[in-house]
Write a protein that binds this DNA or RNA. Structure first.
Length: 281
DNA sequence: ATATGGCCCTGGTTGC
DNA sequence: TGCAACCAGGGCCATA
């Protein structure tokens, strides 16, 4: 499932390919699920706008849009806006040629002035698309702090008072934004902390070890293009390689890479949770 | 404040 | 082999 490293990889790839291009037409499917704003309103808002930049906020892909081109959009020039893409579990954002046959479950196609298309594909429809005009766009910001930029002090202040398991705390997007099941498990392994430990029972040193482990894991995963479990691919449809370096995630029963003890799987916060019973205390 | 469980979805896996 | 039951899970919501 796409988490911070996957979303970062996709956002960078999409940015490199289409920034500066202009949306000529937006074509949306008829399913209701992926749209937070009704598709007709999104299409109207998107058409005629230049894509200034594409970046990541938490697990959201944010397309920064310029003022609407009045020759394509009869309304007077509108101020900037944002198109927000959340990939959910199985969402993909792909840049294709316009004649490429659309993959099954293609819910959105943005036709670009250069003849290409930006496509949103999501079989399970857990993803979300939203168009934000200036007023709402300025209000959009991920609730949580970015795990790559958070300081040790902030991290401790955020987690030390929490009386819930550290795994559940890591997954809570209103605390940190961008950490999902894979990187929660992997960072806890690298920090040597059991997922079931309560956040408020961890020492400052353990919290700092966790912050650094999380940061290390996320940066390493970004360098490898993310983890391809399930059907994740980047903007070119290419897979990442970090799944080859997973220490615990989806390795139930396999020997720990450090001590050979079989990896254990429990259910925590409703999620499959993987850890080494010997390395993590 | 935190926990639990249901819901949304479909494709892959499992079981018969 | 074929088909049906089952399950995963991010985010959100209602309930405890």
């Amino acid at each position: 499932m796409p988490e911070l490293p996957e979303v970062e990889t996709i956002a960078r790839g999409v940015h490199d390919r289409i920034h500066g291009d202009t949306i000529v037409e937006a074509i949306f499917g008829s399913h209701r699920e992926p749209f937070k704003t009704p598709p007709a309103r999104q299409a109207k808002g998107l058409e005629g706008r230049e894509i200034l930049a594409v970046h990541r906020t938490g697990k959201h892909i944010v397309c920064e849009l310029g003022a609407a081109n009045s020759s394509l959009n009869p309304r007077e020039a509108c101020p900037s806006a944002q198109w927000i893409v959340h990939l959910g579990m199985t969402g993909r954002l792909l840049v294709t040629t316009s004649d490429a046959p659309p993959a099954p479950h293609t819910h959105a196609r943005l036709r670009l002035a250069t003849g290409r298309e930006l496509r949103f594909v999501d079989p399970r429809r857990f993803g979300r698309l939203d168009f934000l005009d200036l007023a709402r766009a300025t209000a959009f910001h991920a609730a949580g702090v970015d795990p790559l930029t958070i300081t040790g002090e902030e991290f401790a202040r955020l987690f030390h008072p929490r009386r819930l398991t550290i795994k559940a705390a890591l997954l809570n997007q209103s605390l940190l934004s961008g950490v999902g099941n894979i990187y929660a498990d992997e960072s806890l392994f690298r920090a040597g902390i059991r997922p079931r430990r309560l956040a408020n029972r961890l020492t400052k040193a353990q919290l700092e070890a966790l912050r650094l482990a999380l940061r290390e894991v996320l940066l390493h995963a970004i360098n490898l293009g993310g983890s391809s479990v399930s059907d994740y691919v980047d903007a070119d449809g290419l897979k990442g390689f970090f799944q080859l370096e997973h220490c615990v995630y989806l390795r139930t029963g396999l020997p720990c890479r450090r001590c050979q003890t079989p990896i254990r799987r429990i259910l925590l916060a409703g999620r499959g949770t993987h850890y080494c019973p010997k390395c993590q205390r």
